[in-house]
Design a protein around this nucleic acid. Structure first.
Lengths: 216, 216
DNA sequence: CCCTTCGTTGACCAAGCGGTCAGGGTCCGG
DNA sequence: CCGGACCCTGACCGCTTGGTCAACGAAGGG
């Protein structure tokens, strides 16, 4: 399968054998398509072409596999996006870069992304997933701070910052429900279009769309 | 439980006894919180205070319960929203009404809504769910036609209509991941705020926000 | 009075689940 | 040649799953 290695480079603890990476990337695809409960350890083993016991040799249990994927993928997302924010640019240009980078990440690590965004948001205690929530919060905090900076700089009108942040994230998080990988507009372009729409608005009299189209 | 009767009035075929409604509304809550695979027939029976066998007396199998909820809820959504579009108004005012009505529907029939939007989008053959897809398409077609009308009327600038429609729907469909029923802004108000942001844009120089605030 | 209908139940089934375990290879350092 | 370390496997366990079935009790019409 071509897209089996659709996993971010780091997958937590650092050490990960080739076999473990294969298990993780295969599991990511299965979790993304059938959900956590809908994916059995037998499914994973069969898709990997190995015995079920081997899964338990490399991982403690089903939840550890899932947590490795979602935690690793969420942490990587934040670092991926943060590394792509142009430092000298305006706040709105950085917000645009935030959205485009998220689109790139979605395009590259599709299955892990879907598994992560599909995973339960409001978790039962589970210390394993608490760390993922922290990275999610940091990600959401980042988009809010960019909006706040843009307001302070007079680039964005004063408004409900958390709600505006949710609008931005909603557009990106919902992409996996309709976007096909090798069909239509590439995800980063979709993200850029979304930015233009959200930033400039749909309204006709809003004098065009100045901020995008440097095509970053 | 107070919110158990959180089901749209019609649930398909028309005839539905009180017990069937109880089963459907209870199942909707369980499906919404634990997912389809994560909800067992025993869970449903116990939550209803009845025996598992009785479920099979009223419904053929698990999938029929699920399909009744998601199909009924999706069909009701479309009819609910269509009934709330002001006929004489401008296209953008109708788009705003579309979003606010969706927020109202989400607020009223929370569990059925979540179960429906969480359900698989791209279905394996399953004729049972094909009808739901039709209503979903009609719903998405409605928002696209409103945007198209607004463009034709010069209220919205020319742009990628399907993408703009997806932006609108993304904001609404993602609400259930963060919105708490009795906490913060009511869902219809959130939808109205979203409309203002999307229609007028976040940009500071876009001369304020004329279209909302008749608070329809 | 009986007979049918209908809501209801507990016992039961095969299959699948997550997880365990004893052990078989294979390679490498001593 | 031995002994550990590491991958890897098939058989197995207790439990839960979706679904079936025979039967029971109350209601209601003839």
């Amino acid at each position: 399968m071509p897209e089996d290695r659709a996993l971010p480079p780091e997958v937590e603890g650092g050490e990960a054998t080739e076999r473990m990476l294969q298990i993780l990337s295969t599991s990511a695809r299965l979790f993304a398509t059938a959900g956590y409960e809908g994916t059995s350890m037998r499914d994973i083993a069969q898709a990997c072409g190995i015995s079920k016991s081997l899964l338990y040799h490399h991982f403690a249990d089903k939840d550890e596999i899932f947590a490795r994927i979602t935690l690793g993928s969420t942490r990587e997302l934040v670092q991926f996006v943060e590394a792509r924010l142009p430092e000298g640019a305006t706040a709105s240009a950085r917000l645009r870069a935030f959205m485009v980078a998220t689109g790139e990440y979605f395009q590259r690590y599709r299955w892990a992304w879907i598994a992560s965004t599909t995973a339960f948001w409001n978790d039962p205690q589970q210390r394993r997933h608490a760390e993922r929530m922290l990275w999610r919060d940091r990600y959401e905090g980042l988009v809010r701070s960019l909006i706040q900076q843009a307001i302070a700089a007079g680039e964005i009108r004063p408004l409900d910052v958390p709600l505006a942040g949710r609008l931005v994230l909603s557009s990106l998080n919902w992409m996996h429900r309709w976007h096909k990988p090798d069909q239509g507009m590439p995800a980063p372009e979709v993200a850029a279009e979304y930015f233009d729409m959200i930033f400039s608005g749909l309204r006709a009299d809003g004098q065009g769309l100045p901020p995008g189209h440097p095509e970053g």
